[in-house]
Lab assay of single mutants.
Amino acid sequence: DEEIEKWIETLLKRNISLRVNGKDLEIGSEEFKEWVEKFIKEV
């Protein structure tokens, strides 16, 4: 979905790490990609 890709790009540009389930996810890491894929499937 384009919306999500733009959102991810924005996050990448800002180099933010997300806190997911109490863990810091490094943007661009494998864990982050897995989380994004799960997130996309749920939406």
Rank of each mutant, 00 (worst) to 15 (best):
D24N: 11
I16H: 01
T10S: 12
I27D: 02
N15G: 15
E42P: 03
G22K: 01
K41D: 04
E34N: 11
K6E: 07
E30P: 14
W35I: 05
L18T: 01
E2R: 13
E5G: 07
E9D: 09
I40W: 14
K38H: 10
W7F: 09
E26N: 08
I8W: 12
K13I: 09
L11W: 05
E37K: 13
N21A: 06
E5A: 10
S29K: 04
E37N: 06
W7I: 06
K33C: 15
K33E: 05
K41M: 06
I16Y: 00
R14T: 15
E3S: 14
K23T: 06
E9H: 01
W7C: 15
G22W: 12
K13S: 14
E31M: 10
G28S: 05
T10E: 15
N21G: 05
K41P: 01
D1G: 12
I4Q: 02
G28V: 05
W35K: 02
R14H: 15
E37A: 10
L12V: 13
I4P: 04
K6H: 11
S29T: 09
E30W: 06
W7Y: 03
L25M: 08
E31Y: 08
I40G: 01
E5F: 13
G28E: 05
L12T: 04
E3P: 09
L11Q: 02
E9Q: 03
E34Y: 10
D24P: 15
E42G: 09
K38T: 08
I40K: 05
E34L: 10
E5P: 10
I8H: 00
K6G: 06
L12P: 02
F39H: 06
E5Y: 15
K6A: 10
I40P: 00
E30Q: 14
S29G: 05
K41R: 08
E37P: 01
K23M: 09
L12C: 06
G28F: 12
I8Y: 05
S29N: 03
D24T: 10
V43R: 07
D24Y: 11
I16L: 00
K13P: 04
E42F: 11
F39Y: 08
E30A: 13
K41V: 05
S17I: 12
K33L: 14
E31F: 06
V43Y: 14
V36T: 02
D1E: 08
I8D: 00
E5K: 15
I4S: 03
I4W: 14
W35D: 00
E26D: 12
L12H: 03
E34V: 08
K13Q: 14
K33S: 08
S17R: 09
E2Y: 13
L25G: 04
E34T: 10
I4M: 08
D1A: 13
E2P: 11
D24L: 14
W7M: 06
I4V: 08
S29R: 03
V20S: 06
R19P: 04
N21I: 07
F32D: 01
K38R: 12
I40Y: 10
F32R: 01
W35N: 00
E31L: 08
K6M: 06
L11T: 01
T10C: 15
E34C: 08
L18A: 05
D24I: 13
I40N: 02
V20W: 02
K33A: 07
L25W: 04
K6S: 13
I27C: 04
G28K: 03
K23Q: 09
E26P: 08
K23E: 06
V43D: 04
T10P: 01
I16V: 11
G22L: 09
S17N: 10
K38F: 07
W35T: 02
S29I: 07
I40A: 05
N21Y: 03
N21T: 02
I27M: 05
